[in-house]
């Protein structure tokens, strides 16, 4: 489904501040996979997301989606088949536009935008139904500017928008990290529901190791821009948070000692 081959991203190349954010990263994501990605700060998680969504271009390597080479596709072009949630709840919605207008924009994803009226009566009924399913009472506030909603409500709405037209791939970049624990849990539950219901192939970055094991069917551990571990199947089923932490700190310190020797 999504194939990443030898992806490399270098910031500030050929300067003293050169940083290899992603180094020869390869992975193969199958249809219906729900992959969680963990790693410490600066491990390259967000770089990986940005490279897939197209807000960053690869310096080397290739990205193939359903066999099609999308390496040189611009962000808005990839967005036709890639849905995306940011960590910052403010990034996913237009604050001065109403809930229904935001949904209207999301509803026309991937289609050519025309001079037809943005939202018609039938759309509004559909929006109301979808909002009702979130269980946040947003269906009664469709004419409210999104800027007046709370972070959790905005993130849930963004999730709905990103999956309104079912994307081939859903990218979640720590999308619950900025929310309070109760709201984060609720948003995560909604996420899991939608992903399961529509069988969306998903890549989720998280700092929550417990969550990384509870959700999805595969876990990738990143360190210094490289894939450290790829945990799946029985190994993942038997894995505990402590076990993963131990493995993680062991490999992390290995790479650290390598660096010290060098």
């Amino acid at each position: 489904m999504l194939k990443i081959e030898h992806a490399t991203v270098i910031f500030n190349a050929k300067t003293v501040n050169e940083k290899v954010a992603l180094k020869d990263f390869s992975c193969d994501i199958s249809d219906g996979d729900f992959i969680t990605v963990i790693g410490s700060n600066g491990a390259g998680k967000s770089t990986l997301m940005n490279a897939i969504s197209g807000s960053l271009m690869l310096d080397e390597g290739k990205i193939l989606l359903d066999g099609k080479d999308i390496t040189r596709f611009k962000e808005h072009k990839r967005a036709r088949f890639i849905g995306r949630l940011f960590q910052d709840p403010l990034k996913g919605t237009a604050p001065n536009m109403t809930i229904e207008e935001n949904l209207g924009l999301a509803y026309s994803r991937g289609k050519k935008r025309t001079l037809n009226i943005g939202i018609n009566k039938r759309d509004i009924n559909l929006f109301r139904e979808k909002l009702k399913a979130l269980g946040l009472g947003l269906e009664d506030r469709m004419k409210t500017p999104v800027g007046l909603l709370s972070g959790g409500q905005r993130q849930a709405l963004t999730l709905l928008m990103a999956t309104f037209v079912t994307p081939k791939l859903l990218l979640l970049d720590e999308h619950t990290a900025a929310l309070d624990p109760v709201t984060a849990k609720k948003v995560m539950e909604i996420t899991d529901d939608i992903v399961k219901k529509d069988k969306i192939t998903t890549l989720m970055i998280t700092h929550n190791i417990d969550g990384a094991l509870r959700y999805g069917n595969k876990t990738i551990v990143l360190s210094q821009g490289q894939k450290l571990m790829d945990i799946k199947g029985d190994e993942r089923k038997d894995m505990t948070v402590e076990g993963l932490m131990k493995l993680y700190s062991k490999t992390a310190s290995d790479s650290l000692s390598d660096k010290m020797i060098l």
Binding site: H76, L105, R113, L115, I117, A162
Partner: peptide, 28 residues
Amino acid sequence: WFLKTQIGMSLRATGDNEFMVRASSINS
């Protein structure tokens, strides 16, 4: 009328939140 059309709404969103616009497959 124009600002209520699909293109008009995309235009308004572009000034409001460019991240969201690009992520919604609109060429900002």
